[in-house]
């Protein structure tokens, strides 16, 4: 019996999530099943709906497998949001593994409606600015920066910047005409939105220090589709999901950062590294965000402190 999985996601076919994560994964499925388990990948929401609806599409069987940013369906995965807190991530591979274990032990019921295949995070977020070079906390004051998630918006506000909400495609034009002074994203997508041509400075945080922020991606599958698979194909899928695979995906995301960074440098963007001593100050300025999240979890009936601690411990455990 041959099975073709409909894989649906919101990014373009050039994005590393498509080219370096999903496509190789699909190839591996095909190879290990002797071409009995294949995928058809539908990028850029080709099967309809909006990015926040992707998770429900996997639940309802509109698609068989989806990839989504957990933060898009805000409030759906409140416990998983812990990994979006500032200075949580060590490296993408370890944090992706930790995210998997965390959901297995502490947040499994958040994903009860689907068969979760993997959780992974993107590489460390950086700050790209047109004019002002960011070296210390004070430099954020009054800067208009575009941020991707709820937690990063709050983070920037706490550090003195004024976060501007706008759709990603609007970012290049807004930067080129000075409507915003910069944006906060990882390297991997920066050239795709022409950051290498538009900004002068990139502030990268000391990589021995935890990352400024990251975001969690989910790969989820329709339950009925999984149950309907014959035993041999189930086995192939089981071998290609879980903690190991999550770590591999995180590693692929991190690897996608390197060529993108090269592009930035080649275009003459100055990259400066914020030293650990300065990052201590940034962390202090944003610690209240952790507390607010803990309190929010407590209010929802969970043990916020324990959740935060476990996420940190798991991340540490996988970080070599």
């Amino acid at each position: 019996q041959e099975v073709t999985l409909k894989v649906h996601h919101f990014l373009g076919p050039q994005a590393p999530q498509h080219a370096a994560v999903l496509a190789p994964w699909c190839d591996k499925l095909a190879k290990e099943s002797n071409d009995k388990l294949k995928c058809q990948i539908f990028p850029a929401m080709q099967l309809g709906g909006t990015p926040p609806q992707l998770y429900d599409q996997a639940r309802d069987g509109i698609a068989d497998v989806i990839l989504v940013l957990a933060g898009y369906a805000a409030n759906r995965f409140p416990r998983m949001e812990v990994f979006e807190l500032p200075f949580m991530m060590t490296n993408a591979e370890a944090t992706s593994r930790a995210a998997w274990d965390y959901q297995e032990t502490l947040a499994k019921d958040e994903f009860a409606e689907t068969k979760l295949l993997a959780t992974f995070v993107h590489g460390p977020g950086n700050i790209y600015t047109t004019k002002k070079k960011i070296e210390k906390l004070d430099d954020f004051k009054g800067l208009k920066l575009r941020a991707p998630t709820r937690q990063t918006n709050k983070l920037l506000a706490m550090m003195g910047a004024s976060p501007v909400g706008m759709p990603v495609p609007a970012v290049p034009e807004a930067i080129s005409k000075g409507v915003i002074d910069g944006a906060v994203i990882p390297y991997e997508v920066a050239p795709a939105i022409k950051m290498n041509e538009l900004v002068k400075h990139t502030a990268e945080t000391d990589r021995s220090y935890n990352a400024l922020y990251t975001a969690v991606f989910l790969v989820a599958m329709n339950k009925a589709k999984y149950d309907s698979l014959p035993a041999d194909l189930k086995k192939v899928l089981d071998a290609n999901s879980g903690g190991e695979v999550s770590g591999m995906f995180g590693k692929a995301m991190l690897a996608a950062d390197a060529p993108a960074k090269e592009k930035m440098l080649a275009s003459g963007v100055e990259i400066n590294v914020i030293p650990a001593a300065e990052l201590d100050k940034w962390k202090k300025a944003s610690d209240a965000l952790d507390d607010a999240w803990v309190k929010d979890m407590d209010a929802k009936g969970f043990d916020g402190k324990k959740l935060l601690q476990s996420a940190q411990d798991l991340t540490k455990k996988y970080t070599k």
Partner: peptide, 20 residues
């Protein structure tokens, strides 16, 4: 039938709420 009916739940809102 199932995917179509599921798709109808959110198709209109998804289409009409596109920012652009």
């Amino acid at each position: 039938a199932d995917p179509v009916l599921s798709y109808f739940k959110h198709a209109a809102y998804a289409r009409f709420s596109v920012y652009d």
